[in-house]
C-alpha cells in the first residue's frame, strides 16, 4: 500500500446517490485474475456510448477528470456487492480519495485496506464542495489525514472520521495483514482453547 499523508488536488463530481458497485465496475469486467486495467472501465456504462466510444461530456472523459485525484459522490456510495474491483477501478483511474455523505460498509472497509480514503462529510460541506466544483472547477482542496481534515479553499477545515488503526496503516503505508500476522501466538492459543468446539471443521 502507498503512504497517504496529505493531498492537494482538484476534484470532480458524480453526485448521484446510492452509486452501487455494479455502476462503478459492471460485473462483466470481473472476469480478471489481476487488478490491472480496471480503471479504464470505471463507470463504464455511464462513460461510454453503445459503440464503445467515450461520451465526451462525461466528466471522467474530460481533461479535468483525468487530472482530478478526488471523487465527489452522492450519499451511500459503494453499496451493493463486496467486489474489491470497485476501489481497484477507482484507484486505477487515478483517484486517491472519495468524498460523500456516507459509504456502504463493505466498500468502506475495502477502500481503507487499500489506502483509498473514504471521506464522509456533513451535508452542508458536501453541498459547498458541489457548488465549488461547478463554479470553480480548477480549485484545489487539501486532505490532511494526520489531522483528519478536508481543507476548503476558504481555509475552513472540516474534520472527517476514520478509525485510528486504518489511519495509522494508511499514514505509514503498511498492509493490515501484518497486524494479523503479529497475532500468531494468540491465534494458536485460541485454536488450542477451542479444539473441542463441534463447529470446528477438519483441521
Amino acid at each position: 500500500m502507498e503512504k497517504f499523508t496529505t493531498l492537494t488536488a482538484t476534484l470532480v463530481a458524480i453526485p448521484t446517490e446510492n452509486i452501487d458497485t455494479d455502476q462503478i465496475i459492471p460485473a462483466r469486467f470481473l472476469k480478471v485474475t489481476d487488478k490491472a486495467g480496471l480503471g479504464d472501465n470505471l463507470f463504464c456504462d455511464w462513460r461510454y456510448q453503445a459503440d464503445g466510444t467515450p461520451k465526451p461530456d462525461f466528466v471522467l472523459n474530460t481533461e479535468r477528470g483525468k487530472k482530478a485525484k478526488i471523487l465527489l459522490a452522492g450519499d451511500n456510495f459503494g453499496c451493493g456487492s463486496s467486489r474489491e474491483h470497485a476501489p481497484w477501478a477507482i484507484m486505477g483511474y487515478g483517484f486517491q480519495a472519495v468524498i460523500s455523505t456516507s459509504f456502504a460498509d463493505i466498500f468502506r472497509n475495502n477502500s481503507l485496506k487499500l489506502g483509498l480514503l473514504p471521506i464522509a462529510v456533513d451535508k452542508e460541506t458536501h453541498l459547498q464542495l458541489l457548488s465549488l466544483v461547478e463554479e470553480e472547477p480548477t480549485t484545489q482542496i487539501s486532505i490532511d489525514l494526520q489531522n483528519q481534515a478536508v481543507v476548503l479553499p476558504d481555509g475552513r477545515a472540516v474534520n472527517f472520521p476514520i478509525d485510528n488503526f486504518s489511519k495509522t496503516c494508511i499514514l505509514k503505508g503498511v498492509d493490515q495483514l501484518g497486524y494479523l500476522q503479529g497475532h500468531a501466538a494468540a491465534i494458536e492459543a485460541y485454536e488450542a482453547n477451542h479444539a473441542d468446539r463441534v463447529n470446528t471443521l477438519a483441521r
Binding site: S82, E84, I106, N109, L177, L180, A184, I187
Partner: peptide, 15 residues
C-alpha cells in the same frame, strides 16, 4: 461478505 484483501487475510490467518 468481505473484499479480496480480506479473503487473503482469512486464507493466511483464519482471522
Amino acid at each position: 461478505g468481505i473484499g479480496t484483501s480480506e479473503v487473503e487475510h482469512v486464507l493466511a490467518t483464519q482471522c
